[in-house]
Write a protein that binds this DNA or RNA. Structure first.
Length: 804
DNA sequence: AGCACGCCGACT
DNA sequence: GTCGGCGTGCTC
């Protein structure tokens, strides 16, 4: 047996971001395993913290006294060998702490909770005992804090009158249910009937029910309650030795009250079959390969997923499928549960922590082999993975914006390599990065170019809002859109209206010519800052005055652009008084399950128009929707982001795909002040390929991804000068190790330059190949530990998606 | 993070 | 003289 356990402790700092050696007490020798959570003493006092055992060793270089592990928190490991390695890799790649990675990979309930308890161990002053301890022998740290008596407590501790216990627990609760078990045989129970009073009806019922069971068979107490028996009735029987009540561990099933209709595999189109065969070959030969499945909206990507997963299950392996949170609709869950039944575990944000934990255990124990879920499901504890799918791979929600700032796609590829299994990226509108990789042969491209049910792609009309303005229509809606909406209401068909409100930044747009003010250096939109009354570029910091007239057409109608959903709804109701409208935005969907309810209402045709933001663009399948309207296509074009055209194209394509899914052909109306913009024109013609070509060319010229990689460095401090000085200093530190090719944008104050009384600055490094950059960044973080401890905040984001 | 050690100002 | 302020450095 190894002498020491190597433990990653729950102290998220750089200095402690390494394994610590602990002695293994004899009593744990037989039980301790890699990947278990342990409680260890840490630091000078008697503080204890949670830790993860990541390895064992027979010797240690540490010269000080080595402490012992205090206790084990698990009976079996919560982290597999794979997860231990993945966590430490992830920490390095994302500039994060190992402990944070492990915590992110596990259900929230397994995270440590720390409780400090003050316990009286010697005679103390009676008044004090009464005042502070209320006559008890212990109180919690929080109670003492509330009573403002921490100074007294610390004094008492010095005098050895009280002891402070550091307790480590977690929030994991295993749900238990009570079961009844007869202890007597049928005949024996029959005899018992003689002995009870004639008016003891409940007892008689109980005896009868017990007689219907085999001896020692178990039935839940709830089954007895249906016959009018309470727990106390059963307890009486228990007292008489007829039966006993036992507790059994059960898994919460969030879908227990829903029955899923069994669904059968559909026959595949030629395209689908080809895609299926190609992926299936990689599954069968256990080859790691990344596939990009590019299929137009409605081309049946999901059916390809389902059938490939079936093959994976045949091989006795598991499959992992990631979808964006908002696409995790009951419709989607139904399709998976319908095909694979109980073998599916679903992880989404609507579940309680306890429910998530149970789904996690179901996977861990091998009771579920198919996992469907949002971003963090990429860490699902499947032991043998045969396939990983990322649906809507272009979605930005796959990148976590908090530490660790990981991208699920990168983790998917990592796990795919580990398990020797294919990774399948699916989208109607792949990110430029993925498509470019497919062109270079890094990924294998598979295409589905036709809709599965032979339905035609919807007709897209682009309405020039400048013309509308010229004709005196200054409202949110064009005449054409209103007319078409009215038609739908009378034909008893439905419409979806998208209010494009991507991001929160404001920009200025010319209402006469559609011009958006751009940065002369960075080719991205400038953002309006009312505090300084200027236009600013978020990338390089360029700043200029707010234009009074359009620099292109000299019109004075150049102004701030943006509208709220509620305002739009009111306006729409005015124009169409008979329309039944469902509004979906953050306000109406805040409550748990509100989302589903609203969709259900729309599905049951209790409304004519579904008006909403981004959340209505994805994955919905309503056969009676024959019109999709995009109210303001320009909002996403004006984003201060070099991906604004790509995001606009994706959004328009996705939302157009909602129209004409049934038998009737669909129509799409896009309102814009920039009707000729290529993102809008290419979306209109459903032409991904030529959009890709055009956008790639622009990216090459403006030196952005996928031609360049990006790294974002953010610094903040309560003192503006310090923050500014430091970020310059850090750039100077990194610069010498960069090649000629690298380009540094900024530094610049962030759009919200001051939050929580801190000043934020950021800089973006564009580069092609910098072998030493990552290492140098780690060096930077190590060198600045002291300053970081003194309130200087440094954050590095590898492949950032967010520049605001 | 949290705690102890350590070196300077206003009190019993 | 001491109590206690929070600056600094370490935690197997």
């Amino acid at each position: 047996m190894a002498l020491f356990a190597e433990v990653i402790v729950d102290v998220p700092t750089l200095q402690t971001n390494q394994p610590y050696s602990y002695k293994i007490p004899e009593r744990f020798e037989a039980f301790i395993q890699k990947g278990m959570r342990v409680i260890v003493p840490f630091g000078k006092g008697s503080r204890t913290v949670q830790g993860f055992v990541v390895g064992f060793s027979d010797q240690t270089t540490f010269s000080g006294d080595i402490k012992e592990i205090q206790s084990l928190m698990d009976n079996s490991p919560v982290l597999s060998e794979e997860m231990i390695t993945l966590g430490s890799d992830l920490a390095y790649q994302t500039f994060s702490f190992q402990i944070k990675c492990y915590q992110t990979m596990l259900p929230a309930v397994l995270k440590a909770r720390y409780v400090r308890v003050i316990r009286v161990i010697d005679e103390i002053d009676e008044d004090l005992l009464f005042d502070l301890f209320k006559g008890k022998d212990r109180i919690s740290w929080e109670e003492a804090e509330k009573a403002d008596s921490l100074d007294i407590v610390l004094k008492l501790e010095k005098e050895n009158k009280v002891h402070i216990d550091y307790l480590v627990t977690d929030k994991s609760t295993v749900k238990k249910e009570k079961y009844v078990r007869p202890l007597l045989s049928y005949e024996h129970l029959e005899e018992m009937k003689m002995g009870i009073p004639s008016n003891a009806h409940k007892q008689l019922i109980l005896l009868n029910l017990l007689q219907q069971m085999e001896k020692e068979e178990e039935q839940p107490v709830t089954a007895f309650k249906e016959h009018g028996l309470s727990l106390s009735h059963i307890r009486t029987g228990e007292g008489k030795g007829w039966c006993e009540v036992v507790e059994k561990e059960v898994l919460r099933d969030p879908f227990s009250d829903i029955t899923f209709e069994q669904s059968q595999p559909l026959s595949l189109t030629a395209d689908q079959k080809l895609a299926f065969d190609t992926i299936d070959r990689a599954v069968k030969t256990e080859q790691h390969e990344v596939f990009l499945l590019q299929g137009v909206t409605g081309s049946g990507k999901t059916e390809v997923y389902l059938q490939t997963i079936s093959e994976v299950l045949e091989k006795d392996k598991g499959a992992l499928m990631l979808v964006p949170e908002i696409a995790l609709t009951p419709q989607m869950v139904e399709r998976f549960k319908g095909r694979f039944g109980d073998r599916v575990a679903v992880l989404h944000s609507g579940l309680s922590d306890g429910e998530k934990y149970d789904e996690w255990r179901k996977i861990e124990r091998g009771q579920a082999q198919v996992v469907v879920g949002a971003r963090s499901s990429i860490f699902a504890p499947l032991k043998k993975i045969g396939l990983i799918i990322i649906d809507e791979e272009h979605e930005t929600t796959y990148k976590q914006e908090e530490f660790p700032k990981y991208h699920a796609r990168d983790v998917a590829v990592w796990r795919g390599q580990y398990h020797n299994c294919p990774v399948l990226l699916g989208s109607a509108t792949p990110s430029l990065e993925s498509r470019a990789r497919a062109m270079k042969g890094v990924y294998t491209l598979l295409e589905l170019s036709e809709r599965a049910n032979q339905a035609a792609m919807p007709q897209v009309k682009v309405i020039d809002m400048r013309e509308e303005a010229k004709n005196g229509n200054r409202s949110t809606f064009s005449d054409v859109l209103l007319t078409e909406l009215d038609k739908r209401i009378h034909k008893n068909e439905q419409a979806v209206l998208l209010l494009n409100r991507r991001g929160y930044s404001s920009f200025v747009l010319c209402r006469d010519c559609g011009y958006v003010l751009e940065c002369p250096n960075c080719d991205i939109s400038q953002t309006l800052h009312m505090d300084t009354k200027t236009m600013k570029c978020h990338y390089c910091g360029h700043e200029e005055g707010i234009p009074r007239n359009c620099p292109i057409c000299t019109s004075p109608a150049i102004r701030y652009y943006g509208t709220g959903t509620q305002k739009v709804e009111e306006e729409l109701q005015e124009y169409l008084p008979d329309a039944r409208i469902i509004r979906m935005d953050v306000d109406t969907t805040r409550k748990k399950g509100a989302h589903q309810k609203l969709f259900k209402r729309f599905e049951q045709k209790q409304a004519d128009i579904l008006l909403g933001t981004q959340m209505i663009a994805k994955g919905l399948d309503f056969p009676d929707v024959t019109l999709v309207g995009v109210i303001n296509a320009d909002t996403s074009l004006g984003l201060p982001d070099f991906r604004s055209a790509e995001k606009t194209f994706q959004l328009l394509t996705q939302v157009s795909g909602r129209s004409g899914r049934g038998q009737k052909t669909g129509e799409v109306i896009v309102q814009s002040y920039n009707p000729d913009h290529y993102a809008i024109q290419k979306a209109k013609h459903h032409d991904y390929d030529s959009f890709f070509k055009k956008e790639m060319n622009l990216r090459r010229l403006s030196e952005y991804s996928p031609y360049y990689f990006l790294l974002k460095l953010s610094v903040s401090h309560e003192n503006e000068m310090t923050a500014a000085k430091k970020i310059h200093e850090f750039i100077e530190f990194l610069k010498p190790s960069l090649s000629e090719q690298a380009i540094i944008l900024g530094p610049t104050p962030k759009s919200i330059a001051r939050t929580h009384n801190r000043y934020h600055f950021q800089t973006i490094i564009k580069y092609k190949k910098e072998e030493k950059l990552k290492e140098k960044c780690h060096e930077l973080l190590m060198n600045t530990q002291k300053e970081q401890a003194k309130g200087l905040y440094i954050s590095l984001d590898y492949h950032p998606l967010d520049f605001i």
